[in-house]
Amino acid sequence: MSEGSKNILLKIQYDGTNFHGWQKQVDVRTVQGEVEHVLRFIAGYEVPINGTSRTDTGVHALGQCCSFTWDNPLPTDKLADIMNRRFGAGGLGRSGLPGDIKVISAHEVPEDFHARFSCHGKTYKYIIDRSGDIFERNHVYQFGLELDHEAMRKAAKLAVGTHDFASFQTSGGIPRETTVRTITDITIIQEGDRTIIKVTGDGFLYNMVRILVGTLLEIGTGKREASDMEAIIASTDRSKAGFTAPPEGLYLEEIYFDDGFKCGGSTCTK
């Protein structure tokens, strides 16, 4: 970093319905592309950002993070408000932008901080809904069958820990040196017509959470036994696991960084 430069961490929320995922691509609308567009408008030059997680098409975020460096004199505590006006939050912004991104907070962070490489854990939330509300179809997985939540919880306990999760990886993602990951917690909550599954771990393979949810749903509907989870994991075979749940119900909820720094809820805290 040059003298006068600042390393900034943004916490952002977005509705992923109208995005082709996080990562910038040519000729399609992405979250990274929109954030960089607004930063370029403010700075007057290109400002590349580093995102913590590359969410897929249709996936939402409550606590996505990205970091970047710049030497702009704008006070950091004013940045979120200025960016949100450009994004269209509250009906403002450039013409045609639907206002589906919101910057929750902006913080200056140490020079060596990196939104991706300083991350040591994430929590994803998946929402399954039985109400059939058509206005929720882009924000939940509408699944009309009764679920055995106790069977799902028994299976979830078997997935907690450090395992080779190759069975829960879809081909097509970025090649990984290892498919071993640690899941520290899986919580399954019933709230009226909704079932909410929260998965926390040190990292996730391509579509890992969605395949895990699909497998738990097959267990919850009696297509599989809870005890099958052990064999599915041990097989390291994608064909042995359940279906890939759709993206609409998935939310990146919280991100954990080194030294106890985390982004979740309404801000980033230590």
Score class of each variant (00 low, 15 high):
183 I>K: 00
45 Y>L: 12
183 I>N: 00
266 S>N: 15
73 P>K: 06
218 E>H: 05
108 E>P: 07
180 V>P: 03
145 L>H: 13
266 S>W: 09
152 M>D: 03
96 G>R: 05
202 D>T: 09
78 K>C: 13
166 A>G: 10
186 I>F: 01
48 P>E: 02
259 D>R: 07
181 R>E: 12
94 R>V: 13
107 H>T: 02
136 E>L: 14
150 E>R: 11
77 D>S: 08
234 A>V: 08
123 T>H: 02
136 E>Q: 15
166 A>Y: 02
216 L>K: 00
48 P>R: 04
199 V>D: 01
224 R>T: 03
105 S>N: 09
247 P>Q: 01
160 V>Q: 03
58 G>Q: 02
209 V>R: 02
170 T>N: 14
259 D>G: 11
108 E>Y: 11
119 C>R: 08
197 I>C: 05
20 H>Q: 10
135 F>D: 10
18 N>Y: 08
114 H>L: 11
111 E>W: 05
22 W>C: 07
198 K>N: 13
80 A>S: 13
143 F>P: 00
54 R>Y: 11
78 K>D: 14
181 R>A: 13
144 G>C: 11
238 R>H: 04
227 S>I: 12
44 G>T: 05
57 T>N: 12
69 T>R: 15
245 A>S: 01
219 I>F: 00
42 I>E: 02
45 Y>R: 15
87 F>N: 00
23 Q>W: 10
144 G>M: 13
167 S>H: 03
253 E>M: 03
45 Y>D: 12
112 D>Y: 10
207 N>V: 08
248 E>P: 04
51 G>W: 04
206 Y>A: 05
2 S>W: 08
187 T>A: 11
17 T>P: 06
44 G>A: 03
85 R>V: 13
170 T>R: 15
267 T>M: 05
135 F>M: 10
178 T>E: 05
134 I>G: 06
126 Y>R: 03
195 T>P: 04
3 E>I: 13
141 Y>E: 02
61 A>L: 07
44 G>Y: 03
142 Q>R: 09
138 N>A: 14
210 R>H: 08
71 D>K: 11
1 M>C: 09
20 H>Y: 11
79 L>E: 11
23 Q>S: 13
13 Q>K: 14
54 R>T: 09
39 L>N: 00
238 R>T: 03
190 Q>E: 15
266 S>A: 15
163 H>M: 14
11 K>L: 15
153 R>P: 02
197 I>N: 00
52 T>D: 07
135 F>C: 04
268 C>F: 05
147 L>W: 00
231 A>H: 08
46 E>F: 10
123 T>W: 01
140 V>N: 00
155 A>R: 00
173 G>V: 01
49 I>S: 04
210 R>Q: 06
111 E>K: 06
